[in-house]
Amino acid sequence: MKNLITDIEGISVGHAHDLDLASGVTAIIFDRPAVASGLALGGAPGSRDQLLLDPARTVETVDAFVLSGGSAFGLDAAGGVQSGLRADGRGLAIGPALIPIVPGAILMDLLNGGDKEWGLHAPYRDLGYRAYLNAEKSPFALGTVGAGAGATTVNLKGGLGSASAVSEAGFTVAALVAVNAMGSVTMGDSPYFWAGSLERDGEFGGRGLPAAMPEDAHRLAIKGGPTTATTIGVVATDARLTKQQCYRLAVMAHDGLARAIQPAHLPFDGDTVLSAATCEKAAPDDFAFAEICMLAASTMARAIARGVYEAETLPQGGALESWKEKYERR
């Protein structure tokens, strides 16, 4: 176990980013089509093929998920991943045609100081293809990489995080998330993470919870002016689930998002979770599925804290400090 979503057999992750652009793409590739669903609870989401993920819709499986920066321009990234899959003979077969199914979600990072003067065509299709080519099962980088490259929170640099856990019944559950929150993942102006009670093995600094709640912990602190928000993520398991159960997995992962970010699911963000089951293991009974749901929430919360903890400050002048730059020596 590497505490990553790739701890689930049959999942690879690839990043592509440009720090001058201050944006990037993360591709989550399934070895075999995975049963999938998803849910957006933010008021201003951006996605590709999310309606396909509704449990009432016909197609049950996907070949990949894509998380991208670039706001609506980032929707092109899924096309790059789709091109790579098609070249490798992957996709839903309809007669002689192969159509890779690649839902995606985007976050808004256009105002973070990076150079977004890319000319006629946005670079996200190419970044998506590079992320596909870079996909691997071995440990992948966290922090200021991939879809988390340009991510921010209200007071700290955001980033790409992941976490995993194994249930008592032996099912692996894991999350991967690009943290570009409207609010904060720390308690006021302190180094303590809202997800601190869920931390395992010092994965985001080992500080736990404060002896007393900081005075400003519950004061509203959100990005003002033109907004650059939306936290987007994936939760997955190796259990054999139905599409309806995958939908429930996404619902539960949003609980984790709300535990780790203060506040979440605002009218101005597009907080979205995509969910998948690789079905490598047996179908869980009701109790085992309940634990999978609980772990969907906790791994998402842990992944969010990890994404901020592992982030590095962008090279642009005036960029938000990273957690480590601001707090590691305190």
Score class of each variant (00 low, 15 high):
141 A>N: 11
204 F>A: 07
204 F>L: 10
214 P>Y: 12
135 A>C: 05
167 S>V: 10
151 A>V: 02
146 G>V: 11
195 A>C: 07
162 S>T: 03
180 N>D: 01
117 E>P: 00
200 R>T: 01
148 G>D: 07
145 V>I: 02
176 L>A: 00
187 M>W: 13
161 G>C: 07
207 R>G: 10
207 R>D: 08
188 G>Y: 13
152 T>P: 03
180 N>M: 01
184 S>V: 09
152 T>S: 11
213 M>V: 14
145 V>D: 02
187 M>T: 11
156 L>Y: 00
202 G>H: 12
141 A>K: 14
160 L>F: 14
162 S>I: 01
183 G>T: 07
133 L>C: 08
190 S>V: 08
140 F>P: 06
186 T>W: 12
215 E>H: 08
120 L>P: 08
174 A>H: 00
130 R>T: 13
135 A>L: 05
183 G>R: 12
172 T>D: 03
182 M>Y: 14
181 A>C: 13
135 A>M: 06
198 L>D: 05
211 A>W: 04
179 V>K: 05
137 K>G: 14
122 A>R: 12
138 S>Y: 03
186 T>G: 00
204 F>H: 04
166 V>Y: 05
202 G>C: 07
213 M>W: 14
196 G>I: 07
193 F>C: 05
159 G>Y: 02
120 L>T: 11
132 Y>W: 09
188 G>L: 10
139 P>F: 12
206 G>K: 14
215 E>G: 11
191 P>N: 00
170 G>V: 01
216 D>C: 08
186 T>M: 10
204 F>T: 04
178 A>W: 02
119 G>I: 11
181 A>R: 08
193 F>K: 07
120 L>N: 10
187 M>Y: 14
157 K>Q: 09
148 G>P: 09
118 W>C: 01
203 E>Q: 13
142 L>F: 10
129 Y>Q: 10
186 T>A: 12
125 R>W: 12
177 V>L: 03
174 A>S: 06
202 G>S: 06
140 F>E: 00
160 L>E: 03
201 D>S: 11
191 P>C: 03
180 N>W: 00
149 A>D: 08
147 A>M: 13
127 L>I: 02
151 A>R: 07
135 A>S: 15
149 A>Y: 10
149 A>L: 12
142 L>P: 01
196 G>K: 04
123 P>I: 11
175 A>Q: 09
214 P>Q: 11
131 A>H: 05
193 F>N: 05
202 G>Y: 05
141 A>G: 08
189 D>L: 07
160 L>S: 06
143 G>M: 01
213 M>H: 01
153 T>G: 13
178 A>C: 13
142 L>R: 09
214 P>I: 06
187 M>R: 15
143 G>Y: 03
210 P>E: 01
200 R>D: 14
127 L>S: 10
137 K>C: 03
197 S>E: 09
177 V>K: 00
168 E>M: 12
213 M>N: 08
123 P>L: 04
123 P>Y: 07
159 G>N: 00
143 G>T: 05
195 A>N: 10
181 A>E: 09
141 A>R: 15
184 S>L: 12
172 T>M: 03
194 W>R: 02
130 R>K: 15
209 L>I: 15
147 A>R: 09
147 A>K: 04
125 R>T: 01
132 Y>K: 07
127 L>F: 07
118 W>L: 14
117 E>A: 15
212 A>K: 15
211 A>N: 13
159 G>M: 10
151 A>Q: 03
